[in-house]
Design a protein around this nucleic acid. Structure first.
Lengths: 186, 186
DNA sequence: TCCTTCATGTAACTAGTTACATGATTAT
DNA sequence: ATAATCATGTAACTAGTTACATGAAGGA
């Protein structure tokens, strides 16, 4: 008797999508997700392990023991039903909304309650953050450019790099404007 | 004896930020947020009303009855402690991470399991979504450009418009590439 | 009369984060 | 030795969504 089974969420499909390339452990899934989808869909261990159980109950993945010495390890393999479920989700054209949450942009929105100097410092902090994200994404680029990796992976990475570069450039314009106001040309 | 008080979240500060302009009802806060911060920080009634109580317990806002006829109505006014709390949050330079969640980008990431035609259709759906967001944001522009509105409001709106326009342009390039592949020049 | 807007809230659920807990293997 | 990586999970909490529930005022 299977445990009460939950329906699938985007997180479930991320896991199925990763497993579509071959059997992986929960740990592998986390590592791979951190190097790819993390920037627009983050996963944590406390979501992955329970979800692997749920997918097993639904017959969409199958666990297989793959211990290495005393270290116990379970690989999960996607089943034909799993492949089917993944494909159904993929081709569903229902347009999900983009969700953006940016506390720093929120602060910028209320920045009239800050001094011009504080505003300027805030925009600079935002720029540092964006530049850091771009650096991180660029480090992944060689992986996504390899011939084993399908082109869509690189497309998505380039979208991410482009968006964060655009954001930084926008903030650069704003920084200039605010710096002129303050008389700070650092 | 105040109820158990929760500490402040970004959502609390959005409410304080709105109330900094003057007393508002929960309903007003929702309406204003929907026309401004919604695109990078969404609020729902079921967050607003309990949070107004919490902020009251903390002494950061004060309720005042402002019934209109038989329709009962409570306005909340920010207190000096509330203004202080808002300012402390604003100037805290701790760089919060940007959170982006985009299920459609997720599908694009796994698009190698789709046919080229399906991929193309997906990118077109994404473009329609981005164009719709840009249209909505542009409708807000006159409000944010008015002299009563501080410049930071307009800056944030322009950041949003720019980002979504950039996203659409990126997808346009991708669409072109995929259309050439499929031999579809619609 | 009927629809929209104004107005306030709760209950139940779903999703996600953080902290905790453990221990083997591999590289330095 | 010891630090990093591999490996798996739970418990408690926090945040957020969806559905429900109600009703007055104002405009068409």
């Amino acid at each position: 008797m299977p445990a009460r089974v939950k329906s699938l969420t985007s997180t479930s499909y991320v896991i199925l999508g990763v497993l579509a390339k071959g059997p992986r452990s929960g740990y592998d899934i986390k590592t791979l997700a951190d190097r790819s989808v993390r920037f627009f869909w983050n996963l944590s261990y406390s979501q992955i392990y329970p979800e692997l159980k749920n997918l097993t109950d639904l017959g969409l993945v199958e666990p297989e023991s793959a211990d290495r010495g005393d270290r116990h390890r379970t690989l999960y393999r996607i089943t034909p039903s799993g492949v089917e479920a993944l494909h159904e989700w993929l081709v569903d054209a229902a347009s999900a909304p983009l969700e953006l949450r940016d506390e720093m942009l929120l602060k910028l929105f209320f920045a009239d309650a800050m001094s011009p100097q504080e505003r300027l410092e805030h925009v600079r902090a935002m720029r540092r953050r964006e530049q850091e994200i771009v650096r991180t994404l660029r480090q992944i680029e060689p992986l996504a450019s390899s011939p084993q990796s399908p082109p869509c992976r690189l497309h998505v990475l380039q979208a991410g790099i482009g968006l964060h570069r655009y954001y930084d450039e926008f903030l650069a314009g704003l920084e200039k404007e605010l710096a002129a106001e303050v008389g700070d040309h650092a």
